[in-house]
Amino acid sequence: MSANAGLPNEPSLAERARRIRRNALRMGEIQGQGYIAQALGIADVLAVSYFHALRYHADDPHWEGRDRFLLSCGHYAIALYAALIEAGIIPEPELETYGVDDSRLPMSGMASYTPGMEVSGGSLGQGLGIGVGMALGLKRKHSGARVFNLMSDGELGEGATWEAAMSAAHWKLDNLVCIVDFNNQQADGPSTQMLCSEPLEAKWDAFGWFAQRVDGNDIDAVREAFDRARTLDEAKPRVIICDTRMACGVPFLEARERNHFLRVAPEEWQKALRIIEAEAAP
């Protein structure tokens, strides 16, 4: 089972999210740049995923009964590493090797490099289709495991995403949960100005999915959405559209207009880390 069994000494989900942000900032500091705004924005969703929703064994990342978490948006690797470190799947000291030659933590997530990284994402729009195949395979094996696919809002522009969305409903894949990180920011600007995917909830609904849209930085709301997705008694796939704030938790980074690929000055990393550390539970 997941690390969060509701024990009294267990850190809260908010504390898990704070530590995920801290881990990500420490990795970002090593390279001096990166997709840190996405990592800070998705930290709450990852905290709920890894410390509330997912079943896994930290000491056995290939455990057959695990829920599969696919990082379709491979450039969010820094965020997932931060969560995998907090979950005990990757040893914490290894974060010092982020993006360094021969590291297990390359800047874009790849399955063969990193324990707990299920797919080689990065060619955006592939994760959901792979998830359809895995969900079909799990059903063939009569497995109760689920597939969670995390994708960025930019991936909504890829046609293959919608092929997979149609297919998941066609096969009634109730073991597939898609998480859309809607931070409305992609390489060239706001996603809604690049190729508008709104009305998004209605689109997924029309494609035959159980669709929810929540504030992705409201941990209680995210947890409740995951619970509804897991317990829904309908033979359809589930999507949780998470509206997140780029760089959430570090106000001076949140305020930057172009933060898809953040360049942060050396002294600013420490400033950001101090902000996150100050939130630590007493």
């Binding site: 959901l128 289709g129 895995m134 395979g137 046609g159 293959a160 092929e163 997979a164």
Partner: peptide, 19 residues
């Protein structure tokens, strides 16, 4: 269905599950 990108992605997913 008539969706070759999906076909290949889903085949990858099937193979990842041991098929």
């Amino acid at each position: 269905g008539m969706a070759e990108q999906l076909l290949m992605a889903a085949a990858a997913g099937m193979a990842k599950e041991g098929f």
